[in-house]
């Protein structure tokens, strides 16, 4: 499927929200125990984009986050490292230096995150600056206002130009599903993003609720599957916002496993955007190994 601005290419299949919720409920009934659980917890850690996106972020805060990324839990040195650290463009350089040689990527939000209400020239400049500063991955936001107004061509063009500005950096396209209103719109935005050059599609900025709900993620996974079946191209998925417990994360892995299969259980194709998830997962890993729950104070911020 080539990129086209003709209206026909914005066709997406209808989504039945009631059916989606039933499917999610059934997926949530899977019981993941013992080895399968421990494996899932390790996998979750390796998929985390450790994130800080606050107005108050400073170099010190980012360095602290990077140190956490490099060593999740001193008592368990054999754990996998997280996939990336995600920061604002102004702090990409700091993160890049702190993570040098670790294999952990630096991701930067860009395009006037989180609202995306800026002229396109400024968004593209921001993307270029983030990439120049060393960002391996760029998390852009779509212009939800234009999308909801039905200007799909604008959204497609916007994504395509950001992709171009990314150069070698991977592009994650944030749909901000909490502002899209229906699962039909989520599906349409997913298809649009994938057809316009997204390497990943991502639910949310984390600034709007609801964020990465299970029905929304399922619809996006199904869009990725259909895109793969049609083109052979594997697009990644990143739920972000609202996933804070190991139990939630495992439910997501089950959903990925049964929708996209084994291949997507890989940090190259699935990420969790989260700030507090890692510690709950660590706590569960300690519990699985020792049989005892530890206090949250035993885990670093």
């Amino acid at each position: 499927m080539q990129i086209s601005t003709a209206t026909a290419s914005f066709e997406s299949p209808p989504i039945d929200a009631v059916g989606v919720e039933e499917r999610v409920a059934r997926l949530c009934s899977r019981s993941i125990k013992k080895d399968a659980k421990l494996q899932a917890l390790h996998l979750t850690l390796s998929m985390i984009d450790l994130t800080t996106l606050e107005g108050a972020d400073s170099e010190g805060k980012v360095r602290q986050l990077c140190a956490k990324a490099l060593q999740l839990h001193a008592a368990l040195p054999d754990l996998p490292h997280v996939a990336a650290v995600c920061v604002y463009p102004a702090l990409v350089g700091v993160a890049k230096r702190a993570l040098e040689g670790s294999g952990i990527n630096v991701a930067s939000v860009a395009t006037s995150f989180p609202a995306g209400q800026a002229p396109i020239e400024i968004k593209l400049l921001e993307v270029r600056r983030a990439v120049e500063a060393g960002a391996d991955e760029v998390d852009m936001v779509i212009s939800r206002g234009r999308f909801l107004a039905g200007d799909f061509a604008y959204t497609a063009d916007e994504i395509a130009s950001v992709k171009e500005a990314c150069g070698e950096a991977h592009l994650k396209v944030i749909l901000e599903t909490g502002e899209l209103g229906t699962l039909d719109a989520v599906r349409r935005a997913s298809d649009l993003a994938m057809r316009s050059g997204a390497d990943f599609i991502k639910t949310s900025t984390g600034k709007i609720k609801p964020a990465a709900t299970m029905p929304v993620v399922l619809v996006m996974l199904e869009a990725i599957r259909d895109h793969y079946r049609r083109t052979g191209q594997k697009i990644g998925m990143k739920p972000a916002g609202g996933i804070s417990t190991a139990k939630d994360a495992i439910r997501h892995l089950v959903m990925v496993r049964e929708t996209l299969g084994q291949d997507w259980l890989d940090p190259d194709l699935y990420r969790f955007g989260a700030s507090s998830l890692a510690n709950d997962v660590l706590r569960q890993i300690v519990k699985q190994r020792s049989g005892i729950y530890q206090s949250f104070d035993d885990f670093s911020l």
Partner: peptide, 27 residues
């Protein structure tokens, strides 16, 4: 999601039980 004519759809590795597919399955 119909693949173009002449192309078979890429396969998804979906089996969940040991032996039916490799990787993460349910205990």
């Amino acid at each position: 999601s119909t693949p173009p004519t002449g192309l078979t759809a890429p396969k998804l590795r979906l089996g969940l039980r040991d032996g039916s597919d490799d990787g993460w399955g349910y205990a």
